[in-house]
Design a protein around this nucleic acid. Structure first.
Length: 575
DNA sequence: GCCGTTTTCGGCCCGACTGTTTTCAGTCG
């Protein structure tokens, strides 16, 4: 329901913008963004507390609450239908073309009756665009180019998969003579789970040189814009990259600006105005006089706030908390002592137990849990009770050896146990008792009703031996939707039964996602940040899980694998 | 249309780049 209404509000914002209506578009745009990430279902909120509780949602006032009410009751919003009649076009399709915004799309409709991408292609083939007032030959070329990009455009890519490319571009730019510093900004610096484009900030006194290198990189397909301080390119992978170059002395202001997100920046700038300042990428100004620009910290402090870490700059309470000096101390990178989900060649992993352990030791970890699949997942040759006990013996052997060598490392006996369709587990209690950590997950029948799936998972959570629920929503980014499940009920049950929810940081899982992690932690539920490694290479994904945890305001003590192994095991056995 | 430790009325972020213009609107982030 949230997504349906969000989409309508976005279209309303777009049409209002086309009609040059003042301020309303931003109000609708804000409500779209809020609804899109809201974890509570508006229908539930409305049933429980009516219009009043809808108005509790940030950026939703009387008028928008009534729109939501109307949609819940009638599946329609009259005002939307009226607006849509005035611009009855495929907004999402047309606006996906770079350079086409509300005004131009409206003009194309009014003058040429262009309603969708197919109409647009036809108009171009007939040479109609270039003849249009306010358009021209260049516009036609740009739209043509935009059309071909829109076809090959990649969807947002998981952070872990895009970072190597982004980093390699940064490394190349660093080598340009005269360049003092190059850093990643934007959604990458905020550790967002998926990335839409790569934002790079460079410090240099000679902007021309680095711009030339940037737009001529071998990774570049087309230059979309090139100026003295800002350039945009379309990469061969299908993603866009922006480079912003500023003078070294305004680094803090530029980094703050270029990190975003947009809503955070807007609010910070509004606060600047209310204090008689102006904030831009060039600094914090009082009239013409520069107040702060060297570091981000300085800028936040001058505005009466504590420093806000990039990951939580989303305008979801962090600014208010920073003013009150009540920001949490977020879990820091490198603070995990172990990884509680790793798969070995006993099932569908690539490497023997010991090799995985050695890789973990190299990364400075103190323990891993071996969590091979269990028997119901036949495709992975899942282990039965007998095999699990045989694996346990092997683990004992390696641990003993580590002990003799004086190594501070331990392999924990565990498994990724299937939750059957009826909520029972595919390993018997006798064997569960013998495992040091019992972790469970859904791997089949993803398309159950929300009610049945919730019951199924609650049943597993209530099993007295269960410690961790792995990848709680089952989603695979860009591949598989999350199954439908009542996350509030899961969180409640997890708290009650002392079951940990996993933040699986394999890049295309990132499951739980940030908004749910935040909810879980607020409810007092503990989190485990695991890689779900199927090869030693994957262990490095821990960093991305910490990034997401930080986005969710998670502190060190919320995460059980920051604990020493003794504390962890004691906590698990207390059940 | 939303919002409030200046305000329940009167504000609403800021700047770069492009293209079609003869000074600026549209788009983007």
């Amino acid at each position: 329901m949230n997504q349906e209404i969000a989409k309508i509000f976005r279209e309303m914002a777009f049409i209002l913008e086309a009609q040059n209506v003042a301020f309303k578009p931003r109000a609708y745009e804000r409500s779209f963004e809020v609804l899109e990430t809201l974890t509570d279902d508006v229908e539930d909120l409305y049933r429980k507390g009516g219009l009043k509780s809808l108005q509790q949602i940030p950026s939703i006032g009387k008028a928008l609450a009534e729109h939501i009410e109307e949609y819940i009751k009638t599946k329609k919003i009259k005002e939307y239908q009226t607006l849509k009649k005035q611009l009855p076009v495929d907004i999402s399709g047309l606006s996906a073309i770079e350079g086409l915004g509300p005004k131009k799309i409206q003009e194309l409709y009014l003058k040429l009756k262009i309603k969708n991408v197919a109409d647009l292609e036809e108009a171009i083939s007939l040479g109609k665009i270039a003849k249009l007032e306010n358009f021209g030959k260049k516009s036609e070329e740009n739209i043509t180019r935009g059309l071909s990009f829109a076809k090959t455009a990649t969807t947002r890519i998981p952070l872990g998969y895009i970072l190597p490319l982004a980093q390699s571009i940064v490394d190349k730019l660093k080598k340009v003579p005269g360049v003092k510093k190059v850093v990643l900004a934007g959604s990458i610096r905020r550790y967002q789970e998926t990335i839409g484009d790569i934002d790079i900030l460079a410090l240099s006194d000679n902007t021309q040189k680095i711009m030339d290198v940037f737009v001529n990189l071998p990774e570049v397909d087309k230059i979309l814009g090139q100026g003295l301080t800002k350039s945009t390119v379309h990469l061969k992978t299908g993603m866009d990259a922006d480079l912003r170059v500023v003078a070294p002395e305004v680094f803090g202001a530029a980094l703050q600006y270029f990190t975003g997100d947009k809503n955070h920046n807007v609010k910070v700038r509004e606060i600047a105005i209310s204090k008689g300042y102006k904030l831009s990428e060039y600094g914090l100004f009082k009239k013409e006089k520069i107040i702060a620009c060297k570091t981000e910290e300085e800028i936040y402090n001058k505005l009466g706030m504590d420093y806000i870490p990039p990951e939580i700059r989303t305008d979801s309470g962090e600014i208010e908390a920073a003013i009150k000096h009540k920001l949490p101390k977020l879990i820091s990178y490198g603070s995990l002592k172990g990884d509680l989900q790793t798969t070995t060649n006993w099932t569908d992993g690539e490497t023997p137990i010991k090799e995985m352990a050695e890789a973990a030791i190299k990364l400075g970890l103190e323990y891993i849990a071996v969590t091979d699949h269990t028997q119901a997942l036949t495709i992975t040759h899942g282990l039965n009770e007998k095999m699990l006990m045989r694996q346990a013996k092997e683990i004992d052997k390696i641990n003993l050896q580590y002990q003799k060598e004086g190594k501070n490392f331990r392999i924990l006996k565990s498994a990724e146990i299937n939750i059957n369709k009826d909520g029972t587990l595919d390993i018997n209690d006798e064997t569960l008792k013998k495992l040091e950590i019992v972790s469970v997950a859904v791997h089949s029948s993803f398309r159950m009703s929300k009610e049945d799936m919730t019951k199924r998972i609650l049943c597993a959570i209530e099993n007295p031996y269960v410690n961790i629920l792995f990848h709680p929503t089952g989603r695979l980014i860009n591949k598989r939707e999350a199954y439908e499940v009542d996350m509030d009920a899961i969180i409640l049950a997890a708290k009650k039964n002392n079951v940990v929810l996993e933040l699986d940081c394999f890049p295309d899982r990132m499951d739980l996602k940030d908004v749910y992690v935040r909810k879980a932690v607020e409810a007092g539920v503990k989190i485990a940040i695991d890689t779900d490694s199927h090869s030693p290479e994957h262990l490095k994904f821990l960093e991305f899980g910490i990034g997401t945890a930080r986005r969710a305001w998670v502190t060190k003590n919320d995460v059980i694998n920051t604990w020493p192994v003794e504390k962890l095991l004691k906590w698990c056995s207390k059940k």
